[in-house]
Design a protein around this nucleic acid. Structure first.
Length: 203
DNA sequence: CCCTGATTCGC
DNA sequence: GCGAATCAGG
């Protein structure tokens, strides 16, 4: 497969839309994400986000606006090609944690100590040693959790158990796991408490 | 371990 | 020009 005009166009479009190299590669097919990245660089449309200004000497310099007297048909009134906008290229940043908590003392709603058969539950940290922040985060996630059954769990779903396993109201969180962890971000937060944080937390 | 883009260099 | 291998970061 070679870089036909059509494929290059698709590449440009998706890249400008913020798609990752691997996503683009999958869409195009027959190419790897490395090929996509390489092409992106050769096309000169690299840095979607301008974040530099450091050791490397030159870089901004020229914007060859009219330096293409070659056989290239002059693009007339296209909205295309405007490499001058330095201010543009705002990276979509879906990071938004609206944490409005005045009462950090969460009343610990979960935890149902009644064990059906006598087998110990998985090492759920007792509520009194979870940091309030982590509790709040977990609580928020559990409200929006996917509520998966055991059979629906995969390597990529949060395996945090919620509820009493002996009742129909038992389910697993199911949110996207944090890389390498069995839980989502919020539940990682309650599962892995730093020693310093859980130290001396009275009930 | 999963992913991201950046860079290098033989082809 | 191309892209696998590698690097560097999250």
């Amino acid at each position: 497969m070679s870089w036909t005009d059509e494929r290059v166009e698709t590449l440009k479009r998706m890249w400008s839309e913020g798609a990752s190299a691997s996503q683009i590669a999958k869409e195009l097919g027959q190419v790897t994400r490395n090929a996509v990245i390489g092409k992106v660089h050769r096309l000169g449309l690299s840095n979607r986000v301008a974040l530099n200004g450091q050791p490397e000497g030159e870089e901004p310099a020229v914007a060859e606006a009219a330096s293409a007297p070659a056989t290239a048909p002059a693009p007339v009134d296209d909205e295309d090609d405007a490499p001058e906008d330095e201010e543009l290229a705002a990276a979509p940043e879906p990071e938004a944690d609206a944490e409005d908590e005045e009462e950090v003392e969460a009343p610990v709603p979960f935890r149902r100590p009644i064990i059906p058969a006598g087998q110990p539950l998985p090492p759920q940290p007792s509520a009194n040693e979870i940091s309030p922040e982590a509790q709040a985060a977990a609580l928020a996630v559990e409200k929006a959790a996917k509520r998966l059954s055991l059979m629906e769990l995969t390597e990529k779903t949060c395996k945090w158990p919620v509820g009493d396993p002996a009742t129909p109201n038992f389910w697993f969180c199911g949110m996207p796991v944090q890389q390498g962890k069995p839980y989502c971000e919020a539940h990682v937060g309650v599962a892995f408490q730093p020693m310093s944080a859980r130290r001396d937390r009275r009930r």
